[in-house]
Amino acid sequence: MTTLPSRLRFGPDGLRRLDVASRSLAGIVGGYALAAVAAMFLALALPMPRAEAVYTATMMSFAIHAGAFVWAFSVRTRRVWPGLLGPTLLLGGGTWLLHGLQSGAPS
């Protein structure tokens, strides 16, 4: 597997088209999912009053989405999906834990 550009060139290469489609999907859907989960995690994890934490997390999520989008077009093909889904699942698990802790704890 070589680096991306040779695969991005125009040509009859079906594999290249598939690669581009996969990266685009990863950037749009995977990037959004990562940003959304990161926003949820940060909203619970940031040591600030609730409204501020939510605001800060949501504000940062757009940078996370854009960064993930660009990242999906900058790494080798086989790293794109694992690289996006891994952190998404990790942050999702962390969110689930924090949410359970915070809603379970008597406050």
């Binding site: 959304a36 949820m40 909203a43 609730r50 939510v54 997390a57 999520s61 757009f62 969110t95």
Partner: peptide, 8 residues
């Protein structure tokens, strides 16, 4: 990006 608001 409503997710953080809706969760918290």
């Amino acid at each position: 990006m409503p997710w953080a608001v809706d969760l918290a």
